[in-house]
Design a binder for these strands. Structure first.
Lengths: 217, 217
DNA sequence: GGAAGTCAATCAATCGATTGATAGACGTAA
DNA sequence: TTACGTCTATCAATCGATTGATTGACTTCC
């Protein structure tokens, strides 16, 4: 028994029924230990959530930066960033969902700290979009709304993507890059660079995939 | 004291901290009544949630259908539907969020019933997109992914829109219609019909807006 | 022998829900 | 008008169950 197993069990429950609705006894049972033993690994239920969200956001920031550094122009950087965002979300749907939904369960201090990480990640998108707007590669009526729309539709992948569904991860990435390009009016001729799209590591906290509830992917 | 006030107080709490994290005594206090009195209006805490979600989804279905009937071609119908979706989400952000997030707190039976309503609403989008694809007005690599992306980015409006922010609701609607058109490769010349975009009624369950946490809109 | 891991038992606090009772509004028969 | 019955709205008190967390004892391993 190690802390990763505890985190995986926790993420699976938190993603399915929420942080507040999950008791520590239930967490213990899911991890195969007594609820008291859980406190040997994590300081408290709250600390466990902080660990999960913190590691998720830090991995997103690191991965996002790597994706950006793999390209030079805003157009190509956007493709890398979107593709990473989609890959990360598709690879770690449950962890990503917990990091998004359960921020509200944190204490004010912890929430502010996690919000700073979230802001840091979103700043990557803001930067690319601003640069592309400056060079004229992108064209949109409102950069902020475009950023929110592009990020949100990528985040939504967690709701329906399943590893062995109708579409491969690569296909989903390609399609979301294409949709983002369209939103930003990137010319068709510039589309789909032959640079390989980034993948995303599976987090230690990501539990084994749960069976699909929809028949979308 | 009537049931709408109870629902508003409940939605405000559920949206902020979640269904499971909100106690019935807290609900009572927020509504200005004793927790026992709450059971005079609603059968149980769970029934209260069912009412909230059910009324929200039914209003979305009704509003969505009205929006569709206000236009004839898939291109114009899509504009109406997107604009309604955005208007509804911006007008009822907290109720919409509860209806989205707290579906998991429902009993299996109730959840399936609510899921049917959700499916019914999403079918409106599927229908328009399929028709537009058939007539050649829309062009996309994958209709299903386009639908998910368009809906998701509209739903995200609940996270940042504020009534007296930088952008008016009409501006947000225009912009989201434009982005949806771009995703579906609708020619520029066909854009922005002069048909007035639909608004959305504020639900009885929607509490007064909470102060903005971001500085986006 | 001591450090690390584990758990049954237990803590005070809170949970959703119910009880029995009260106060007032309304209708109606005398 | 008075008196009685009925219905709605409300709450303090309380129910058994569960919550997050702690303790002390037991085992295991180096």
């Amino acid at each position: 028994m190690d802390i990763d197993q505890v985190q995986r069990a926790a993420v699976a429950r938190f993603a399915q029924q929420g942080f507040a609705a999950t008791g520590i006894r239930e967490l213990g049972t899911a991890a195969g230990i007594n609820s008291a033993t859980l406190y040997h690994y994590v300081g408290s239920k709250h600390d466990l959530l902080v660990r999960i969200i913190s590691e998720c956001l830090k991995a997103m920031i690191t991965g996002g930066r790597e994706a950006l550094s793999a390209a030079q122009t805003p157009t190509l950087q956007l493709a890398q960033l979107i593709a990473f965002h989609v890959a990360f979300t598709a690879t770690n749907p449950q962890t990503a969902r917990v990091a998004e939904y359960e921020m509200r369960a944190l204490t004010p201090v912890a929430r502010e700290e996690m919000q700073r990480l979230r802001d840091e990640y979103e700043a990557l998108f803001t930067k690319v979009l601003n640069e592309g707007d400056k060079t004229g590669e992108f064209s949109t009526a409102d950069l902020t709304m475009a950023r929110l729309a592009v990020m949100e539709m990528g985040t939504g992948v967690a709701h329906w993507y399943r590893p062995h569904g109708r579409l491969s991860l690569d296909q989903v990435q390609q399609n979301f890059v294409a949709m983002a390009y369209r939103i930003l009016a990137v010319p068709e001729t510039a589309k789909l660079p032959n640079t390989p799209l980034p993948s995303a590591q599976q987090l230690p906290s990501e539990p084994t995939a749960q069976p699909a509830t929809q028949t979308v992917n």
